[in-house]
Structures are given as C-alpha cells and as structure tokens.
Measured scan of single mutants.
Amino acid sequence: RVIAMPSVRKYAREKGVDIRLVQGTGKNGRVLKEDIDAWLA
C-alpha cells in the first residue's frame, strides 16, 4: 500500500498517474505532490 495524503491521491488521479509507480521521497517513503510533478516531468 502506498503512503500518501488523500489530496495527493486526488492530484495523481486528476493527472492520470498510477500512484503505485511513483517513488515517494517523503518520510517513510510517503508520496508527495512534488513526486507526482517530478514523475510527470
């Protein structure tokens, strides 16, 4: 299970990103909004 705040999950869904593919850089591997942006870049 991916650790991410609900707002980040929603952001990823809106961008069409599968959050399971994104490498989290936050505490304990948490996926941050910046990680979604970096994955899209």
Rank of each mutant, 00 (worst) to 15 (best):
Q23T: 13
E34A: 12
I3G: 06
D18T: 05
D18A: 06
G29R: 07
E34I: 13
I36V: 12
M5L: 14
R30Y: 11
D37S: 04
E14K: 14
E34P: 08
L32A: 05
R13V: 13
A41T: 14
G16K: 10
W39T: 05
W39S: 05
A41W: 10
L40D: 04
G24K: 03
P6F: 04
T25F: 03
D35L: 01
G24A: 07
G16A: 07
V22Y: 01
W39Q: 06
T25E: 02
R20W: 09
I3S: 08
R30N: 08
V31R: 03
D37G: 03
R1S: 12
E14H: 12
V22P: 03
G16S: 06
G29E: 06
L21D: 10
R9L: 10
R13A: 13
R13T: 15
W39R: 05
G24R: 03
I36L: 04
G26H: 03
P6C: 08
L40H: 06
L32M: 10
E14P: 00
N28L: 14
N28P: 02
K15Q: 13
R20F: 11
E34S: 13
A12L: 02
Y11F: 04
K15N: 13
V22H: 01
V31T: 06
K15G: 03
K33V: 10
D35T: 01
L21R: 12
A4W: 02
R1K: 15
L21W: 10
A4F: 02
N28A: 14
Q23P: 15
V8P: 02
I19M: 06
V17N: 00
A38R: 12
G16W: 05
A38D: 14
S7P: 07
A12I: 01
M5A: 15
D35Q: 01
V2L: 11
V17Q: 01
E14R: 12
V2D: 07
V31W: 01
K15H: 15
V31Q: 02
R20H: 13
A38S: 14
G29Y: 05
D35V: 00
V2A: 12
D37V: 06
Q23S: 13
A4V: 08
A12M: 01
V2R: 08
A12K: 00
S7L: 08
L40E: 05
G24Y: 02
L21E: 09
V17S: 01
K27M: 13
G26V: 03
G29K: 08
L32Y: 07
D18M: 05
N28E: 10
A41G: 11
A41H: 12
I36Y: 00
A38Y: 13
S7K: 12
E14I: 13
L21C: 08
Y11D: 05
V22T: 03
Q23A: 11
T25G: 05
D35I: 00
I36W: 00
I3W: 02
V31F: 01
K27P: 13
Q23D: 09
T25R: 07
V17H: 00
G26Y: 01
V2N: 10
G26F: 02
R13P: 01
G26R: 03
S7T: 11
R1L: 10
N28R: 11
V22W: 02
K27R: 15
K27F: 11
T25D: 02
R30Q: 12
A4M: 04
T25W: 03
L32P: 00
A12N: 00
A4L: 04
L40I: 15
P6M: 10
R9F: 12
K10N: 08
K33P: 06
R9I: 13
A41R: 15
A4R: 04
D18G: 03
K33W: 07
G29M: 08
I3Y: 03
K15S: 09
G26D: 03
Q23R: 13
D18W: 04
K33N: 06
V22I: 10
G24M: 02
A38K: 13
G26S: 04
L40T: 06
R9M: 09
R9T: 07
R30H: 12
V8E: 08
L40P: 04
I19E: 02
V31S: 01
E34T: 14
G16N: 10
M5E: 15
T25M: 05
A4I: 08
M5P: 12
G29V: 02
L32N: 07
R1I: 15
R1M: 08
I3M: 03
K33F: 09
G29W: 04
I19S: 02
V17L: 06
R13F: 12
K15T: 08
K27T: 14
D37M: 05
K33A: 07
L21S: 09
K10S: 08
A38F: 14
Y11H: 11
A38M: 13
R9N: 05
K27Q: 10
A41P: 06
N28Q: 13
D35E: 01
V31P: 03
V17P: 00
Q23I: 15
L40V: 12
W39M: 08
R30K: 12
G29N: 11
Q23K: 15
R20Q: 14
P6L: 09
A41I: 14
G29A: 07
R20M: 10
Y11W: 03
T25S: 11
Y11E: 07
V8Y: 02
A41E: 15
R13G: 11
I36G: 00
W39G: 02
E14N: 11
I19Q: 01
V31L: 06
R13M: 15
